[in-house]
Design a protein around this nucleic acid. Structure first.
Lengths: 165, 165
DNA sequence: AATGAAATCGACCAGCA
DNA sequence: TGCTGGTCGATTTCATT
């Protein structure tokens, strides 16, 4: 199913995907492995591009980004243009994520800004994109992101599929 | 507006939010600062909890997580229960993000699993939650996440608001 | 795949502007 | 408070198994 990952790799991923600001020794102790072995495996996971990057996670609220919104965007259908429009929406400052979906609505954009006026500006930029037909936004009152990560968020059958040969 | 951040802090955030797998020296050179100064500022940003954590970013496709879906969830309204339901949805394996919104739909959940059958199981778990009224899901054909981060994704007025006194 | 030794890098401290 | 330079401990790398 994917590049050979064993249960030790999966445990390492769960650890460092939750917090990589710990010493190798901490990870090694939790898994009863040597520091070198943990380092070796992490390098391998990076080489195989299972770990994409190591990044600092910034608190959006600390920067005053308290206005979160979901915007449905429908477009006039023209062959092959949809993906371009998705990328155009993505380039707008404040847009965090764009999903291109099946269904009556074509795109769903998640935006994060400081003020309602910034959100208005943002939506105007979306509307101004050539091919965009109609938008409809709703405010997000609360987000539940948890401390949940890709590797910690697998279903049981998903975990089995990865570990099985 | 927020804990005093200057333009140097903001530049550091943009650097390490995109890639923290570089040496302090690299960051320092790009900003014409000493290693110690960069270290000092990063520590401060961590102390002030502007940097929440440092984490490894795992490629979902490398783990076979290719089925992404947006699920609208409406609930029977009972005082104060909404937040609990949001948290309950969040605890389901495969659910990545939950938004509680104003509007006719109450929650929007983003899920990421390996197969359509896993998605069916997931949606059944959502429906089984006490208080959940109706769900409606759509497949995501494509995601545009870019390499965009909180600090690199500010609007111009947002940037001004942070840097101004 | 995993180890231990040697080179390199980051964390911390005292002191200074 | 913000920064420097130096020291110590941790991490990375590499030769070896």
């Amino acid at each position: 199913m994917c590049p050979d990952i064993d249960d030790i790799d999966l445990k390492i991923l769960q650890q460092i995907e939750a917090d990589f600001d710990v010493s190798l020794e901490t990870v090694a102790n939790k898994l009863d492995l040597s520091k070198s072995a943990v380092h070796y495996r992490i390098q391998k996971l990076k080489d195989e591009e299972i770990i994409n990057s190591v990044t600092a996670d910034v608190d959006p609220f600390a920067l005053g980004l308290e206005v979160v919104s979901l915007t449905d965007v429908s477009v006039t259908h023209r062959e092959g243009y949809s993906e371009n429009i998705g990328e155009e929406i993505m380039t707008i400052d404040g847009v965090e994520q764009v999903y291109y979906t099946m269904g009556d609505v074509d795109f769903v954009a998640v935006s994060r800004v400081q003020t309602r006026s910034q959100l208005n500006d943002l939506i105007e930029e979306v509307v101004a994109i050539d091919g965009v037909n109609e938008t409809s936004s709703k405010f997000v009152l609360e987000e539940f992101h948890g401390a949940r990560n890709i590797s910690a968020n697998l279903t049981q059958s998903g975990r089995d599929a990865i570990l099985d040969p």
